[in-house]
């Protein structure tokens, strides 16, 4: 049995998924959509944290997307800080969208303004849709 010297919180990357207090059936796990927008707010709450971002539509209007994430303690142990995302930040997120088409999904990762990626990295070739369509990366 290997010995593990755990140094620093970053090594406590999740070996297990965090509690999901509902079925994941509502998300289309076969899709990985990429959204680019501005953070409206981040709610740190159990059992799910929530990231709300405003995404511009082709007609210029904005739609509020709600991305559900893990309990705060799991995010913090994955390297998030309470101020990692702030209202007004321009971010790109990757998520599994809701099957019913509403603007919501299960957060996979978020790219911060400084380029840091929090969450599970996704190969760009696995992105199935980009909103707005012209968003790069």
């Amino acid at each position: 049995m290997k010995r593990f010297m755990l140094v620093g919180l970053s090594l406590v990357g999740l070996a297990a998924p965090a509690l999901a207090h509902h079925s994941m059936a509502m998300f289309d796990k076969g899709q990985a959509i990429q959204l680019t927008g501005t953070v409206k707010k981040m709610l740190w709450t159990n059992p799910h944290s929530w990231l709300h971002i405003m995404v511009r539509q082709p007609d210029g209007s904005e739609v509020e997307w709600s991305l559900e994430s893990q309990p705060p303690v799991d995010l913090l142990r994955e390297g998030w800080k309470r101020n990692s995302v702030k209202a007004g930040d321009k971010v790109t997120v990757v998520a599994s969208p809701l099957k019913d088409g509403r603007p919501g999904g299960s957060l996979i990762n978020v790219t911060l303004p400084d380029g840091m990626v929090l969450g599970r990295p996704v190969d760009p070739r696995q992105i199935t849709q980009k909103i707005p369509a012209h968003a790069s990366k």
Binding site: L43, T45, N46, P47
Partner: peptide, 10 residues
């Protein structure tokens, strides 16, 4: 971490 917090969140 309490599941039932969801009921008090915004």
């Amino acid at each position: 971490a309490y599941c039932s917090e969801a009921r008090s969140s915004e």
